[in-house]
Amino acid sequence: MSLISLGVVAVLFAAGTYLILQRMLSRVVIGLGLVSHGANLLIMLSGTRPAPPPVIGKSQVAAVADPLPQAMVLTAIVISFGVTAFLLALALRSYLLTGSDAVEDDLEDLRIRGIEGEEKGASA
């Protein structure tokens, strides 16, 4: 794996994380897509260098690229597309129903904080 491809993976992860860490559901989906790209590349490229495709008869068996990560990544690409489609539908429905696709604070968790605040007030 070359320096530049590792750098690409790192940038994909960083940009994806930046997008995931905010509240608009549609941007979170895009962030997840970037992270998936990064992960696929990482699996595919770890420990390899440019090589001929693993097709028997085209080139020497010893020189071809490793077929196993390719098969796994191929599956992963398709699955992450399925997940992305589902999440996009979720974001769209959230927007159509509430007029916004932002993720609000969890009410139950806010309630726990509220209890804590009350007790502070009572003891003070």
Binding site: V8, A51, L74
Partner: peptide, 11 residues
Amino acid sequence: GLYAVFGAPDL
């Protein structure tokens, strides 16, 4: 394109 460089035409 990167996949192509690394010998993965299926990808």
